[in-house]
């Protein structure tokens, strides 16, 4: 467990991101706030489409622009605003500072280069002191493939992504993200596209690797069991903002935001990735999002003020925050 007075490694402040689409702007991120401390294992949960991936890509400034536009906010990494960095400063952060495992490993690997070429370049450009020669790079590449328990790494180096199974691609992506030896690893639904047993193996492997290196992690997953097992703290996201955050134990014992409560009550189903099965309704339209609390059209406890004004974060316990008027005192 990480002490709460450790200075934050990453702090996201009031992050707002829009997407320009035919017919207007999708107002997706509506002021996201998050803190990750050094060594902390943070979970991020929320139904599909609530903006988890968008938040993570905005942190690394890798959203495709256009159509995305970062409208406001700050992303402070060790106190420096990533969103206002020059390209050379940004390069110091990407990879070595923060690296990321993408949701879809097939899409995240370049289809026309071998694993060796891609992993090799990741190693070459994230190396901290001096230059590596081709042989050193190859040794390190083999080493990182072994760490993610991939058999026959020599052969893999010469393989193209399509020659690999889904599970192997996922492991390669993990190997690449860890090869930079990041301080913070973002893992966006690792293994979601794979079957449950392989997903389980992969999550276990990932967990061991980050614990071994004491890497901070933001883990996005729909599997609440994993969140409970792996993370120190959890952020719950709904329709583009964080609606609740608490130490993992607290959140599971005492969920407060109406959406979170539905989430915890819903029996995890084997089929489907949605976590909000306990709550009727769908994620709102980002073109014309609901006024006030974006959850209000689905909320069983909706009040007059909820429709008018966006609820601020209320402190409801030690390190436990909820953005809901039910807890205004």
């Amino acid at each position: 467990m990480v002490r709460m007075d450790t200075p934050p490694l990453l702090e996201v402040r009031d992050l707002q991101v829009h997407f320009k689409v035919f017919g207007g702007h999708l107002k997706v991120l509506d002021g996201v706030n998050m803190i990750v401390r050094a060594g902390e294992k943070v979970g991020l949960v929320g139904e599909s489409g609530c903006g988890k991936t968008t938040t993570m890509k905005a942190i690394l400034r890798i959203l495709p622009q256009p159509p995305a536009k970062i409208v406001g906010g700050q992303v402070l990494f060790r106190g420096q605003d990533v969103l206002r960095m020059r390209p050379d400063e940004l390069r110091q952060i990407r990879g070595r500072g923060i690296s990321m495992i993408f949701q879809d490993p097939t899409a995240a690997l370049n289809p026309v280069f071998t694993i060796g070429q891609q992993l090799g370049d990741v190693i070459r450009y994230s190396h901290r002191n001096g230059r590596l020669d081709a042989r050193q790079i190859q040794l390190k590449a083999l080493q990182s493939l072994k760490e993610v328990a991939l058999a026959d790494p020599e052969r893999l180096l010469h393989s193209y992504p399509i020659q690999l199974s889904g599970g192997m691609r996922q492991r390669v992506c993990i190997a690449m993200a860890l090869a930079t030896q990041p301080e913070l690893l973002i893992a966006d639904e690792p293994g979601t596209s794979l079957d449950v047993t392989i997903q389980d193996q992969i999550l276990r492997l990932l967990h061991n690797l980050v614990v071994e290196r004491n890497t901070s992690i933001i883990l996005i997953t729909h599997t609440l069991g994993v969140v409970r097992e792996v993370t120190d703290r959890v952020y719950v996201m709904y329709a583009g903002s964080i609606v609740e955050s608490a130490p993992t134990k607290t959140l599971f014992a005492n969920p407060m935001f109406p959406y979170t409560r539905g989430l915890m009550q819903s029996v995890p189903r084997l089929s489907g990735g949605g976590v909000a099965e306990g709550i009727p309704g769908r994620i709102p339209n980002y073109l014309h999002p609901p006024s006030g609390c974006r959850f209000h059209p689905r909320c069983p406890h909706v009040m007059e003020i909820c429709r008018r004004e966006k609820p601020p974060m209320f402190t409801v316990g030690e390190e436990h925050y909820v953005a809901c008027y039910l807890y205004a005192c």
Partner: peptide, 25 residues
């Protein structure tokens, strides 16, 4: 594409991404 985002996220310099990883495909 996600692979361009991934290459950026992993710290590969922009000139390498443009001249190699984007150009070839």
């Amino acid at each position: 594409k996600d692979y361009i985002a991934a290459e950026r996220a992993l710290g590969i310099p922009e000139r390498v991404i443009m001249g190699k990883y984007l150009l070839k495909p």
